[in-house]
Simulated assay, not measured.
Amino acid sequence: MSPTPSARRLRLGMPRRVFSQVLLMQVTIAAGVAVLVTGLFLAPLSKQLDHEAMRRALAIAETTAQDPQIAQGLLTTPPTKDGPVQQEAERIRRATHAEYIVVLDRHWVRWSHPTTSQIGRIVSTSPSGALAGKEVMEIDRGTLGRSARGKVPLYDAHHRLIGAVSVGIAYDSVRARLIGVIPGLLAYAGGALAVGALAAWLIARRVQRQTRDLAFSDISALLAEREAMLHGIREGVVALDRGGRIRLLNDEARRLLGIGDEAVGRAPDEAL
């Protein structure tokens, strides 16, 4: 026999018991908070790692630009794969583990590049900021893919602008650092979620004992029945709490005593 539509809705919907509903809501809230905190932590961390990578690229570019062999080679030799500029730039690149170090002249022509076939060609991204004497940090995409970049002007011994130095840090390395912290972060989030789930279970068990594991609809029905019973009988009913204050009045008690709802919460002598 197939289940009725109402039974099917009950099976697929929220649990009926107070214990199950409270537990489900508490665990959902704890999980939502854990996800939110994780997202709020990762967003600034990603920006911080990007900034650190750009600062490192800029520092390597400044070190390369201060190397006298770079400026001298740019002024006295042609851009070739065996030239002094390429040799010195590659030495610095290997020592610093940069993705690339590109030295270029004022006409945007490369004098060094990890891919030697690119030497003597025009750069793929504009170096106008560095050629204007400014230091530049950015996240951009070039011939070697997405990278964190630092660009600085290149001066000769007489402090004349003769070109620029561009250094890139592979963006995959930045992403790898970000991915590396995620397991630890998820472990903390999982621990917080487990504590939240345990607290939710304890709260739900307490609510279950106090409500005798009734469903919310059952509790609502009992309250409605109680109200109907109290107001339907012909005898006056007055209920007092431990402090002797009125907590409940039915219609007949109000009529007999000549008091209204304002008496609730007050002592009988005050109400009368």
Rank of each mutant, 00 (worst) to 15 (best):
D241L: 00
A89F: 01
G260C: 08
P79K: 02
R106N: 03
Y100F: 13
L198S: 11
H51R: 15
L223G: 07
L23I: 07
R212F: 13
G39I: 10
E262A: 15
A95Y: 15
E138F: 12
A98C: 07
R175H: 13
K134L: 15
G133M: 13
D67I: 01
V238N: 04
D105E: 00
S126W: 12
H158W: 12
S20M: 12
W201P: 01
A221D: 08
A267S: 14
W108R: 15
R245T: 07
A95F: 15
A164T: 00
V264H: 04
L40Q: 13
I122Y: 14
I60Q: 02
G265I: 01
R209W: 13
D50M: 03
L40A: 13
G180V: 02
G133L: 09
R149I: 06
S20D: 14
H159Y: 07
K81E: 13
I122S: 13
I122W: 12
A228D: 08
M229I: 14
I203L: 14
Y155I: 02
R106W: 03
G196F: 07
R8P: 03
D213M: 00
P153H: 06
L248S: 09
I29R: 10
R255G: 09
L40V: 08
R16L: 12
T76C: 09
V237E: 03
E90L: 04
P84D: 05
L36Y: 15
S147D: 02
D140C: 03
I162S: 06
R146C: 05
R175S: 13
P79F: 07
E227H: 08
T115S: 10
Q72Y: 13
I122H: 15
R254D: 03
R93Y: 11
G258Y: 04
K47I: 09
G150T: 01
F19W: 09
A170P: 10
L223T: 08
Y155N: 00
G184H: 06
L193M: 08
H159S: 06
L36V: 08
S220R: 15
I122M: 14
I70H: 07
L131W: 03
G258C: 10
D251E: 15
G191I: 04
V195I: 14
R255T: 11
P84R: 04
E62Q: 13
V33R: 03
Q87T: 14
V167L: 00
I101C: 04
Q86S: 00
E99A: 01
P44K: 03
L23Y: 09
Q118S: 05
L214V: 08
D105C: 02
Q26R: 12
A59C: 05
E235N: 10
H231D: 12
H113F: 11
D67L: 03
I179M: 12
R206I: 13
A31D: 05
R177Y: 11
I169Q: 03
A253N: 00
M54T: 01
S46W: 07
P44N: 08
K134V: 10
A221G: 05
D67H: 02
W108Y: 14
R234C: 09
P79N: 01
A192K: 02
L40H: 11
G13L: 05
L249V: 03
L272V: 10
S173G: 10
P127Y: 08
R206G: 12
L198T: 04
P183F: 05
R17N: 10
K47V: 12
F19D: 02
T4Y: 11
V181T: 10
R9N: 14
P79I: 06
Q210K: 06
S217V: 06
W108S: 09
L186V: 09
Y171L: 07
V238H: 09
G184Q: 09
L144I: 06
